[in-house]
Every structure is written in C-alpha cells, then in structure tokens.
Write a protein that binds this DNA or RNA. Structure first.
Lengths: 189, 189
DNA sequence: ACTGTCGTAGAACGATCGTTCTCGGCGCCC
DNA sequence: GGGCGCCGAGAACGATCGTTCTACGACAGT
C-alpha cells in the first residue's frame, strides 16, 4: 500500500475508533488491525500516538468545515444561513452512531495531559465561533449574537449526547430564532 | 482512621485529582498517597475503581445541588431565580482551577466504556434539567424555556473550559434574558 | 542470478496500572 | 497473658499498551 493511501486509511480508521470507543481505549494494535497497515508504517507516519490523535482531530476538523459549509451554502436568506447551523446539528444528532462532539470528548479525556489535543480542540472551536460570527455578520446581526449561538450549539452537542436524544437540536434552533428576533435580524435575502 | 472519615477523605481527594488531571490519568496509588489511606482500605470502601469514580460523581452531584440551591435561594424574584443559574456559572468559571464540568468531562472520557459513569452523569444532568424546569415553572415560564436554558448552561460550561474564559457565563446570561423575554416572563415577585 | 533495500508480521521490551498478597504490628476478648 | 483478627505499608502479580526490534519475504538494479 502506498504511503498516502495508508495515511488516509489510518486517519479514517483511527478517527472512527477514537470516536466510537474513546481515545485511550483504542490501542495502536487495534488501529493497525483495523487500518490494515503495519506498526512500522504506522509509526513512520505518526511517530507517537499523541501526534496521530492530533492529526485525527485536524482531519475531523476539515470534515466538519466541509459539512457545515455545504449546509449553510444552500440557504435562501442570511437568516436561514444562520439557522442552518442547527439543521446541521439535527441531522448529525440523528446519525445512529452519534456519540457527541469528538472535540469536546477528546478535550474532556486528554485536555489536562496533552497540549496537542488541547490546541487542536481549541482551534476547531475558535473556527466554529468565527464561522458563526461571519454568518451572523452577513445577516447584519451583532457580535454578541454569534457568541450566544456558539454557546447554544455547543450546549446542544453535549446535551444530545448525554441525554441520548436529537431533541436538543430543535430546541436550540427555536432558541436561536428567539435570539435572532431579539437582535432584530429580519428574514430578508 | 475511622471508616467514615476515611471514605469522606477518599471521596474528596479523589474527586479533586480526577477533576484536575482526568480520571484515567489518576492511579489508585496516587489516590492512596493523597488521601492517606491504605490500598486495602481503599478497596474495601470501593471494590473497584469504577465504583470509586461513580461515588465521586455522585458526591460531586450533591455538592452541585447544594451550591446551586444556595444561589437560587436568595434571589428576589422568580425571574431572578432563573437568572441566578448563570450567576452561579459565572462564579464557578472564575475559580482558578476551573476545568469544565466534571460530568461532561467524565462522560467524554469514560462514556463508551463505563455504564456506571454514564448513568451518574445522566442522572445529574437530568436533575439539572428538572431543577431548571422547576425554576422556570415558578416564574410561569413554559417548559420549552427550561429546555433552552438547560442547553445554554451546558454550552456555557464547555465553551468556558475550552476557550479558557469566564465570558460565556455572561453571554449565556444575556441570551437567557432574551429568551425569558420571548417567553413573556415578567420581572415580578 | 545476486545483493541490497524496503515493507510486513509479529514477538519483545519496558512502563504503567488495577488488584491482590504478604508481612509485621497493634488492639481485643477469654 | 496469649491467641486472634484487623489494619497499614508496600511488594508482587497480571494485564494492557506504547514503542521498538527481529526475522523473513518481495522487489529493483546491475
């Protein structure tokens, strides 16, 4: 197997395993078996587990950005683009193997012991915050609205995973509508 | 040392260590050293680490309920009682060793592998949800408002810990004020 | 065809950790 | 007072895991 495809294979497989079982519960051997590469290759691609974990998070980050962009792209009005965030959450929460936000989980698991993980999680949340900020600005909403929607989105993620329900997405969406109203964001294109 | 004081000592010490460093990063030896009890005593109090972790979470749960009760008790109006939730968050986030919600962290770390932890976290979040529900009902607010405030509170916790800022408490509080307004909750005693 | 390089499979190592066992000492009851 | 049982300190055990090493096979260049 060629190096690039091996790397892609490892990232995808490891990401799935980490998300499903937790990071510390997945050994390098399990990743080797699932990805079908040798340990040697694994370690020449990622010299330590920490770096593999970070690479997985950054890969996951790329995926999230693409998915969210796709969701917000085909909304009719700026207001709908903001609300599309919560439609994305709704669809995500309904996936049968949804187990919460991989970044929040990784932070809870390794935040105190791995600066790499902390940084990767931090970066992705800062991006999400800024992205929401852009959507809000395009709808002529104030910055504080973006802060609130960001909190709402993160809250929906943890609430949905702990309670094992997709409802928080709809509840957060309704709350977002009220906050948009409070910020005087009209529904015009 | 007497059995009950040993148990209290262990719960308090272990809780602090778990919260500070993460659960899997703290070995039983570290708890023994910090609590000043023997391993034998530790294992006769809690036959396995899993059970110690669950007991710690339930102990933490008791603490949270007391603290939150104290905060909401001395609010002037029903509306202020609801908003007191976010004052509590604000004070909590400002504690120098704040590292997020211990329950959310534990769930991210052990959710997939420990049903005991999952149950303890679930129970505490259900309680928080219901408690917010009671506060909202006393303010004549609708049930959906409680759902939204619950999401907002959880979101503030993870946002504050990942971004390392106490700001989310105030931002969530402002959002809560808007949602209260949207739900027509007046500021009367 | 031979040699050298690369890759894989899998054993092996060293550290950590949860759990149990051993040993020595202290108090308690007949 | 002497046997008995409980307790504390720490060693020991067994499993797991991250990481490295070994042995062997495939392939390319001359």
């Amino acid at each position: 197997m060629d190096r690039d495809t091996a790397e892609a294979q490892v990232l995808q497989t490891a990401n799935a395993l980490f998300y499903e079982r937790g990071i510390q519960a997945v050994g390098m051997d399990a990743i080797r078996d699932a990805a079908g590469v040798s340990l040697k290759r694994l370690y020449q691609l990622f010299p330590a587990k920490d770096e593999l974990v970070e690479a997985c998070l950054r890969e996951r980050d790329r995926g999230v950005r693409n998915t969210l962009d796709r969701f917000t792209a085909n909304a009719a009005t700026p207001r709908d683009r903001v609300l599309a965030i919560f439609d994305w959450l709704d669809e995500w929460f309904r996936e049968p193997d949804f187990r919460g936000c991989g970044f929040i989980n990784a932070f809870g698991e390794l935040g105190p012991s791995s600066p790499r993980v902390t940084a990767a999680v931090h970066d992705q949340k800062v991006w999400l915050h800024q992205h929401i900020g852009e959507l809000v600005r395009m709808a002529n909403g104030p910055d504080w609205l973006a802060d609130q929607l960001f909190i709402l989105a993160n809250g929906a993620m943890v609430t949905a995973s702990i309670l094992g329900s997709a409802e928080p997405a709809r509840q957060a969406r309704t709350a977002a509508e009220h906050l948009l109203e409070a910020a005087d964001v009209a529904n015009t294109p």
